[in-house]
Design a protein around this nucleic acid. Sequence first.
DNA 1: GATGAATGAGTATTCATTCAT
DNA 2: TATGAATGAATACTCATTCAT
Lengths: 199, 199, 199, 199
Amino acid sequence: MSQTIRQPQQERSIEKKNKIVKAGYELFSEVGYYATNTAQIAKRAGVSTGIVYGYFKDKRDILLEVLSIYVERAFSPVLDLMDSLVAPIDYPALAKQVLAKAIAIHGQNANIHEALHSMSHSDAQVNAKFIELEDAITLQIAGKLASLGVNSPNLNERIHFAMDIVQSFSHEFIFDHHTYIDYAAMREIVESMLVSLFE
Amino acid sequence: MSQTIRQPQQERSIEKKNKIVKAGYELFSEVGYYATNTAQIAKRAGVSTGIVYGYFKDKRDILLEVLSIYVERAFSPVLDLMDSLVAPIDYPALAKQVLAKAIAIHGQNANIHEALHSMSHSDAQVNAKFIELEDAITLQIAGKLASLGVNSPNLNERIHFAMDIVQSFSHEFIFDHHTYIDYAAMREIVESMLVSLFE
Amino acid sequence: MSQTIRQPQQERSIEKKNKIVKAGYELFSEVGYYATNTAQIAKRAGVSTGIVYGYFKDKRDILLEVLSIYVERAFSPVLDLMDSLVAPIDYPALAKQVLAKAIAIHGQNANIHEALHSMSHSDAQVNAKFIELEDAITLQIAGKLASLGVNSPNLNERIHFAMDIVQSFSHEFIFDHHTYIDYAAMREIVESMLVSLFE
Amino acid sequence: MSQTIRQPQQERSIEKKNKIVKAGYELFSEVGYYATNTAQIAKRAGVSTGIVYGYFKDKRDILLEVLSIYVERAFSPVLDLMDSLVAPIDYPALAKQVLAKAIAIHGQNANIHEALHSMSHSDAQVNAKFIELEDAITLQIAGKLASLGVNSPNLNERIHFAMDIVQSFSHEFIFDHHTYIDYAAMREIVESMLVSLFE
DNA sequence: GATGAATGAGTATTCATTCAT
DNA sequence: TATGAATGAATACTCATTCAT
């Protein structure tokens, strides 16, 4: 009824909360949200089932936290790259770097990305959080590029579309779905595409 | 145990099977796979719960059938467009047409697309079927373009990537997520990107 | 979600529903509502846990049904008694009979009465149903008495109060709580009080 | 395991124990015993959950203490009234006064009365305590009345029955259940009933 | 004495699947 | 073929109670 969620301040507590998120991250990633149950999360985290509800309102709340962790982990390398950018921009090199980073991250987090993304279709709050995060990143990149003198028309749109492309290709690349596709060649095509978006 | 799945030959049976698939299509689309139960499917299809298992091995089996229906519905308009293509290709016009079709289809089938796509991450067979279908379509388009004299290097890769772009943008466009994005402008950017892929 | 509750029409089904109600009746009576779980009800009824929810929305819904059964069982003997009443009324004899019936019934249903009554304080719907039933009975008795020429002022109030007294005493009598009380003597006092209410 | 219950001797401790009982009293009264959890009690009492088990064996033990408080609170006004009684007794006036007091008390403690009373059916110890307290009060009143020269036959039985009536009517009156009942008229009937019990 | 984090058994309810008719 | 009643395993979540600090 009036169950309150602990906001852990002490180190031990934070550690425990992190363990639970980590367990959730792994399990959602391995088998998906629906195939994961709270007992498994607790067990892998090395805690009791009860305490999970001391830190999280419900199972979905864990997903939300996992989402935050994921997004930070997934986007910060690219943002770091942008941060260190100086004029004049070497677009081909940048495209190469961005794609390399994106693929690397996707490789480490591929499954969770899909699990989270899929949830965003059945869960409005997950969706909202995803959008919020994408927005923040797009605008941050736009600010950086503008400060470097990039003045392409519809800059936001180009960045957003570029992000879509990178995302989409990284996914393709990692999962290596299609046997008749030469992914190295495709990668070059994507890179030149990205360059042509901003040059 | 060794329940055999009927391969319906009689018209009445085929009709009934179709009703079940249709009900599944609608419900998965409306509320997603996990929020749909077999009783609901049976009810909407106007059949008993028992008979569902006369036509389908299990709930997932319905999903697989729904997937086939979806893909046919989703890709055939674009394939028709390609079929009617004659040389010389007016790339800008073609890009416009393809995007228009894709958006229209996505608008009518947006939810089921997401429902199915999300399942492909937790279900290898769904994933395999998705890939198989994408492959067939890519190769079909490639054949058509080749027959019209298109000889861009890495044609398969370009087509596949073009499909990714179209898919990705259609989704964005329909869901109209981001308030700061001018989708009309973004649409033009996508169109010009598509053109630059083949010209 | 859209789980529908079967309204059993076939004999077999009605029998099964009755078994569940009977099991609920017994268990609520024996150990109370909160100490009874659905698995126990199902087990005693000889059915699966699942089917319980085919006939009842939830555990409380079983209680509501038990309540109906109980009230019918508890009040109909007294109502029968009233039905057979002819003028002129022999009040002392009637009081004796009513009390005898009430005590007998209470003896057979004592625990369930308490279990149900106690629920009426934490459950508005149970309470409402109790009131509704009491009302119906009071008014039915009032009609009968009026038709026999009884014209005491505030007849409804007298009947209702009489019911309270009878209820209260039956409970005392059955549980035989207090060692210093001569219940036979008390019974006579109650009887004369009832008589004085209407004479 | 062999946790010993502190019998608080120090003032601070007694205060803390009282706070817990008060919180229990309020919560049991507001939402009932089963809907109250120990965390809520501790929170409202301003103590930790752990220390509750320093003062009480278990949750039920709190209920027992609450019961004592309640009975004292509920009966002492009527006992005070009896104490101040002098011969010759004005029965109509006394009946009026007793009923007024009883209704007032019931109005302030209605919910807890029900909560406790309902527990007495599923808990033998609660029941025993209830009986013990009723006994003490009945006998005390009987002594007082005897000392004032009342010598009705079966005095204990009359007093006990009078208490039942008062209790029963107070409950009815407070909850004002039945729309077709004129409670003012009913009140007068009850008063005259009480008078006729002793005159 | 006191804290409040931690435990884990307990429970109502759902639902894919089966099976008697 | 068809029905829909029946099954029972599975699961999110609660809460009285304990215990390390």
